[in-house]
């Protein structure tokens, strides 16, 4: 049992960190624009494919640096020439713009790289076992994912709270007009933040690509869960995104590990159902089986009981 708990914790933290890499950028953009960027996971996918392509030519490490820069630049362009123009027509137009963009990116990726998974592998320098715990091997690559995510969190936190640029971004989030009055170029701040946000998503893509599967539906698989992280964590709150990512990573991993069913829970309260009773099928469903929907359940509960999220300062 202890073994399962420790291994699940490691797996959960790792998954949570991967979520955080993407959610950190998304939550910044969300609070700036006031709309969800539906295409955020598409930039993560682009990161994975750019990383794959570059690593074939230049090797993994240069790809890890160059791919996010390219994707970030692409993101900045999308903000400058796409979103900023659409912004005039209100939030709905922006929302639809990012929604459409996600489809465009998916189609383009399918045209360039096909619909099948590409052969994106863990670099040989990280392809070994880092440590063994209870006879379960922990790959070095996963440890690398974990450390990268933590490093990025630390750097982001420092930049946002301790530097001048960070202070301007924070001010622009809440009082854009005032910041503009003081002589700062607010649209450019937004563009840079958008670029950095999408670049971070690309970092997540380059790193997650070899560990998961690099294929044209990877954005669709991770996209929805990102929104859960942002809403649960609270608007524009980096610490919130961090906590929510960890929470969801752990919840989902532990849910898989649990074999408790609704019937078992009822039995605790003394209610026993005959196996052929009405609804008996439903009570036999285990928590493990419904693990994938648990985060969405959390989303619904948070929206009902704490709409501003765990660490948010204003209503969603």
């Amino acid at each position: 049992m202890l073994e399962l708990i420790i291994v699940s914790t490691l797996n959960g933290v790792l998954y949570g960190m991967l979520l955080f890499l993407m959610a950190s950028g998304l939550t910044l953009i969300f609070s700036m624009m006031g709309v969800l960027n539906f295409a955020h996971a598409s930039f993560y996918m682009l990161g994975a494919f750019f990383g794959y392509q570059l690593s074939r030519v230049l090797g993994f490490w240069p790809a890890l640096l160059i791919a996010p820069v390219l994707v970030g630049a692409l993101g900045a362009l999308v903000e400058r020439y796409g979103l900023r123009t659409v912004h005039r027509h209100g939030h709905v137009a922006e929302l639809l713009f990012t929604f459409g963009l996600a489809f465009v990116v998916e189609e383009v990726v399918q045209m360039l790289w096909g619909r099948l998974p590409v052969d994106y592998r863990v670099p040989p320098s990280l392809d070994f076992t880092a440590f063994t715990i209870f006879s379960t091997n922990y790959p070095a690559y996963k440890l690398f994912e974990l450390l990268t995510a933590i490093a990025i969190f630390a750097v982001l936190l420092l930049v946002l709270t301790r530097t001048r640029a960070g202070l301007i971004i924070q001010a622009a989030l809440t009082h854009p007009d005032m910041v503009a009055m003081l002589g700062h170029n607010v649209p450019r701040v937004f563009m840079l933040a958008f670029g950095v946000g999408t670049g971070l998503a690309a970092v997540a893509g380059v790193i997650a690509g070899p560990a998961l599967v690099t294929q044209s539906n990877m954005a669709g698989l991770l996209g929805p869960i990102l929104f859960v992280v942002v809403v649960v964590g609270g608007l524009g709150s980096l610490a919130g995104a961090f906590a929510a990512s960890l929470l969801i990573g752990l919840v989902q991993t532990f849910a898989v590990a649990m074999n408790v069913s609704i019937g078992d829970l009822l039995a605790v309260f003394g209610a026993h159902l005959a196996p052929d009773a009405f609804f008996a099928e439903i009570t036999q469903v285990t928590v493990a089986q419904i693990a994938p929907i648990v985060p969405y359940l959390l989303l619904v509960l948070i929206l009902i009981f704490r709409p501003r999220g765990l660490f948010g300062t204003r209503e969603t």
Binding site: L4, N11, S135, V256
Partner: peptide, 11 residues
């Protein structure tokens, strides 16, 4: 996309 939690359980 990541079966590690299931493998931990099998183990």
């Amino acid at each position: 996309t990541d079966f590690s939690p299931y493998i931990a359980k099998i183990k």
